[in-house]
Simulated assay, not measured.
Amino acid sequence: MTDPARSTGPGTPAGPGTPAGPVAAWHRLAGDSVLLDGFHALKHALRFGAEVRLALTADRAGALALADELAADVRDTLAALLTEVPHATYAALVPRPHPTAVAALAVRPSRTGNLARLAHAPRTAPVVVLDNPRNLGNAGAVIRLAAGFGATGVVTTGTLDPWHPTVVRGGAGLHFATAVERLTVRELPPGPVFALDPEGEDIRSLKLPDDALLAFGSERSGLSAELRARADHLVALPMRPQVSSYNLATSVAMTLYHWSATGGAPGTS
């Protein structure tokens, strides 16, 4: 039986009147897939082993030129995956068209596998915990940071879905480079909890262990009472008086940098 995603042939442009196969496949797969929004999200997902079900573009030549320039390691894979459709067809399939006119659908990593990775001991890099985050873009930026520093994973508590398309877009596809899950405070993996709080000990006096859970409160209300009660250490970032707070992603970046600068090794998780 012919796969409708391949009705125009793998990696071949669809003619102006023949987007029905890829579009039908997209609608069939979208419900339980991760949306990879843009060239860079697809590039990163492929680099870290994502199973990509379908990849569409309104500019196949442009996407492959980007691959030649920025992602030669996955260029051949992209060439085999990308199917060209008219720009209007592409734009109708995504919430907000990306400048690179590329979108793909990938299989979400196994929750069981992610939980095993988060709980594995000994850990060689911390887990970032976002306690009741509110801003989807901030959550995506944190996942991108965590992947760059080689953190074991990012866990959110509360109602925000860390696999929401806006979060994945903000993370540039790097959800596939680290373990990303939503848990309750009671379900957090083992390890000492270092929670960021203005009343805590100056982070510059501490060495953060590799198996730490680095917890950050919400942008509006800080740490929840439940997470504060679970914390083993309260930690404060240096801040000029009368400055109320840092952006969430900035706080995570400063903390992960401190971990890496005092003995942690990015990329070892």
Rank of each mutant, 00 (worst) to 15 (best):
A106L: 09
A106K: 13
V107S: 10
V107R: 13
V107H: 02
V107L: 12
P109E: 02
P109K: 02
S110W: 04
S110D: 14
S110C: 03
S110Q: 03
S110F: 02
S110M: 04
R111H: 08
R111L: 15
R111M: 07
T112N: 11
T112I: 12
G113D: 15
G113F: 08
G113Q: 14
G113W: 04
N114E: 11
N114S: 14
N114C: 14
L115S: 04
L115R: 11
L115C: 05
L115I: 03
A116C: 00
A116L: 12
A116M: 06
R117M: 11
R117N: 02
R117I: 05
R117K: 06
L118H: 04
L118F: 10
L118A: 03
L118D: 01
L118G: 08
A119I: 00
A119P: 00
A119E: 11
A119R: 15
H120L: 06
H120Q: 14
H120V: 06
A121V: 09
A121T: 10
A121S: 15
P122H: 06
P122Y: 03
R123V: 14
R123F: 15
R123S: 13
T124N: 04
T124Q: 13
T124W: 01
A125C: 04
A125E: 08
P126M: 13
P126V: 04
P126Q: 11
P126A: 11
V127K: 00
V127C: 11
V127Q: 05
V128E: 13
V128D: 11
V129L: 09
V129Q: 04
L130A: 09
L130G: 06
D131H: 12
D131R: 03
D131C: 07
N132G: 14
N132C: 13
N132T: 15
P133Q: 10
P133M: 11
R134Q: 15
R134C: 00
R134D: 11
R134S: 10
R134E: 12
R134N: 02
R134T: 15
N135L: 15
N135V: 14
L136W: 05
L136A: 14
G137T: 09
G137C: 05
N138Q: 07
N138M: 10
A139T: 14
G140D: 07
G140W: 03
G140P: 05
A141T: 13
A141W: 02
A141Q: 06
A141M: 05
V142E: 06
V142S: 02
I143N: 00
I143Y: 13
I143A: 01
R144G: 10
R144Q: 04
R144Y: 09
R144C: 14
R144H: 03
L145R: 00
A146S: 14
A146M: 09
A146T: 01
A147R: 05
A147N: 01
G148C: 12
G148R: 01
G148F: 09
G148E: 11
G148M: 08
F149H: 01
F149K: 01
G150H: 08
G150Y: 10
G150I: 12
A151F: 07
A151W: 06
A151G: 01
T152K: 07
T152F: 09
G153M: 07
G153K: 02
G153R: 06
G153A: 05
V154Y: 05
V154E: 08
V154R: 08
V155W: 03
V155M: 02
T156L: 08
T157Y: 12
T157M: 05
T157V: 11
T157C: 07
T157G: 11
T157N: 12
T157L: 06
